[in-house]
């Protein structure tokens, strides 16, 4: 039976939550292709043991001191050794920032191209066709591999619902890769946060988020007015924070905060995947955008197509009417 290697990512004392989603993706790929899943979990046998109760055939605890603080070279080398030993047909990873850092190199070392950022797959003519957003989410690319296994796929957050333990008891094998300290060229320091966050957007009930559609810093005033009329916190997409118009702590998305307010109003935000992963859990999503095909509308409950400089003042006026 062909094998799928699902590579998990440690985080703190446990696992990055996207690991369980990637594992679900691996299990679905296994069902579709008639394969079995081997979990590869960097860490101690005890920590990796968590995966033994999932619907998998084997758990490999990848144990080495050099895998503690993340360094790309160590991960690539260690995983190459696992792949050479286990000979999987597929290698599945969560599409985390860490995966983005090492997986393209891992695949390249085996003369393959990683299918990154995948939001799912469908079987066509007996082979999986993997999808991912392209052109800033305006279109979906459907890709096939022309190379024989092992082929590499990383699944985006939300592509699959997190896998659940299935009461199994797969064997846990410890594998100690041979790593030469001198060959690990990246010297990482401890992760840190910038100055303490003054705003916790994740606690906000309502959020008005501005994007590049706001055009100028001075126009932020309009968004502030809408936020105050709604009793909402102000947030932004990345370019607004890159420009220094709002502090980074107000950035929503994969590099910033993940929020799930009752109401999220997106003003002039296109809806790139890195923004959407940070807010798609919101209760009610309102999107205002002049482009009727903007991807933000795919996840909106209420869509207002038009110029935000005309629509926003009208909403503020309407809210004030009600309040007066």
């Amino acid at each position: 039976m062909s094998r799928i290697l699902a590579v998990m990512e440690p985080a703190g004392a446990g696992w990055h939550r996207m690991s369980f989603e990637a594992l679900a993706g691996a299990l679905e790929l296994a069902r579709a292709t008639g394969s079995e899943v081997t979990v590869c979990a960097p860490g101690s046998a005890q920590a990796a043991g968590e995966f033994a109760s999932f619907d998998v055939s084997e758990v490999v605890a990848l144990e080495h001191e050099a895998l503690g603080a993340y360094a790309a070279d160590a991960w690539v080398e260690a995983l190459l050794q696992v792949i050479r030993g286990r000979q999987p047909e597929w290698v599945v990873l969560p599409h985390t920032y860490q995966t983005r850092d090492f997986a393209p190199a891992l695949a390249a070392r085996m003369d393959r191209t990683l299918m990154g950022d995948s939001t799912g797959f469908a079987m066509e003519d007996g082979a999986p066709v993997f999808e991912r957003p392209m052109f800033q989410g305006k279109l979906v690319g459907r890709f096939v591999f022309e190379t024989p296994g092992p082929n590499f796929v990383s699944f985006q957050a939300g592509a699959f619902r997190a896998a659940q333990a299935a009461g199994g008891s797969a064997p846990v094998h410890v594998f100690r890769p041979v790593l030469d300290g001198a060959a690990i060229r990246q010297r990482p320091e401890a992760p840190f946060r910038e100055a303490a966050q003054a705003v916790d957007l994740s606690a906000a009930e309502r959020i008005v988020a501005v994007g590049r559609g706001i055009q100028e810093e001075a126009n932020l005033e309009l968004a502030r007015e809408l936020a105050s009329a709604l009793g909402a916190e102000l947030a932004a997409s990345r370019p607004i924070c890159d420009n220094g118009w709002l502090p980074m702590e107000r950035q929503v998305g994969s590099s910033g905060q993940t929020v799930a307010p009752k109401l999220y109003v997106a003003l002039g935000i296109s809806g790139a995947i890195q923004h959407i992963v940070g807010m798609k859990g919101s209760g009610c999503i309102v999107a205002i955008n002049r482009d009727p095909k903007a991807p933000i509308f795919e996840i909106a409950d209420y869509a207002l197509v038009g110029d935000l400089f005309e629509i926003t003042p009208a909403i503020i006026e309407e809210l004030r009417k009600g309040a007066g």
Binding site: M115, L139, G141, F143, D301, A303
Partner: peptide
Amino acid sequence: AGLRLKQLAEPRRQRETQFL
């Protein structure tokens, strides 16, 4: 190329969107 773009599709709507 080892990875081939087979097709471009339209994004799928994930919520019941009401256009006002």
